[in-house]
């Protein structure tokens, strides 16, 4: 600890700091946007300057949108009389992702396993490698919807980030972890942030956890259980929970004009698996089961980690107030993992 130093940047200097940083490397940071109907705001990770910086709210969409954009062109066709050529370009510019929470960061790392599974998805990994990550660690839960401590995420983990920041009285303490974080420290130096000691951080308030890890096989066993039919009748089959989720990675590929685009798709919808000949999941409960089981059973069975990082977005965003924690508890009870 002793030879490490940290910087304190006060709230009033924060914008100036991000702006200076943005001049060196493009910065993606959570910003506030007015909802179109004027009934409030939502925050989202976007390039700096599009809205007002807000680091303390839960963003509507997770950082998934930075690595797997909701919609991106993966190919273009150029046609001449002789032949059709396909051209593709992977993103390559370096950027800083500022103030991401450990739940999101962990989610991205867990998705690395999938996107690197046998075939390496360069769209994902190019963005992964080009992104300098500043983790905003949580010494207490954001609100009552956080449940990262259920699914094996350490809210104050610092090791794998490039820089770490922590909310402190009147501002943030930022310190460097890896070499790639130097660019941020340089700018902090330049804008005259005060040097302070690296704080000792202890997470508080992450209580009453239900340990989900390790129950994937027990859940798999209750796939055919009747409980699914009555588990969540309120689910309407929209895509909100999957779109806001940092680990929901399913996508659709379509040709639009001379471009091949991929964009997010959602397993809770009827169209997801329907073909003209076959619909393996005709009922809503089957689609809800797919989402829950994919996260808590299939993903750990396949990749060894739970496909959920407890960010709480699906809970806060669900229009019908479905709380996935309630359902997990009921399922684990049914599977006799907990009493």
């Amino acid at each position: 600890m002793s030879n490490k130093k940290a910087y304190f940047i006060s709230d009033d200097k924060l914008n100036g700091f991000i702006e200076s940083l943005n001049e060196k490397v493009p910065v993606y940071v959570p910003q506030r946007f007015d909802r179109a109907d004027g009934t409030g705001i939502y925050t989202e990770y976007r390039p700096y300057g599009e809205g007002e910086v807000d680091l303390e709210s839960r963003t509507l969409l997770s950082v998934k949108s930075i690595f797997l954009p909701q919609c991106e062109v993966i190919l273009g066709f150029t046609t001449n009389e002789e032949r059709v050529d396909v051209v593709s370009e992977a993103p390559s510019d370096e950027r800083v992702l500022f103030s991401i929470r450990n739940c999101d960061f962990e989610a991205v790392r867990r998705l690395d396993l999938l996107f690197g599974w046998d075939y390496r998805d360069e769209f994902w990994f190019a963005r992964r490698e080009n992104t300098i990550i500043v983790v905003n660690i949580c010494d207490s839960p954001l609100d009552d919807k956080c449940f990262c401590h259920w699914v094996g995420v350490d809210p104050v983990a610092t090791e794998l980030a490039d820089c770490v920041m922590l909310r402190a009285e009147g501002g943030y303490i930022i310190w460097r972890i890896s070499e790639r974080g130097d660019v941020i420290i340089d700018v902090l130096d330049k804008v005259g942030a005060d040097e302070v000691d690296v704080p000792e951080v202890e997470a508080k308030g992450f209580d009453n956890a239900i340990e989900v890890d390790g129950s994937h096989n027990a859940l798999f066993e209750i796939f055919t259980d009747e409980i699914w039919k009555v588990l969540e009748p309120s689910c309407i089959g929209c895509g909100i929970c999957t779109f806001v989720c940092p680990t929901c990675h399913c996508f659709e590929i379509q040709d639009e004009g001379s471009k091949r685009v991929r964009f997010w798709d959602y397993c809770t919808g009827y169209e997801f698996t329907r073909t003209e000949a076959h619909q393996p999941r005709p009922r809503q409960y089957q689609r809800y089961r797919q989402r829950v089981m994919h996260k808590y059973s299939y993903y750990p069975r396949r990749f060894g980690v739970v496909g959920c990082t407890g960010c709480g977005r699906c809970i806060s965003a669900c229009p019908q107030n479905v709380d996935i924690r309630e359902d997990i508890v009921r399922l684990l009870k049914r599977a006799k993992v907990i009493k």
Partner: peptide, 8 residues
């Protein structure tokens, strides 16, 4: 009501 981005 359900619109997550508040389209009126």
């Amino acid at each position: 009501r359900v619109c997550p981005v508040g389209i009126p």
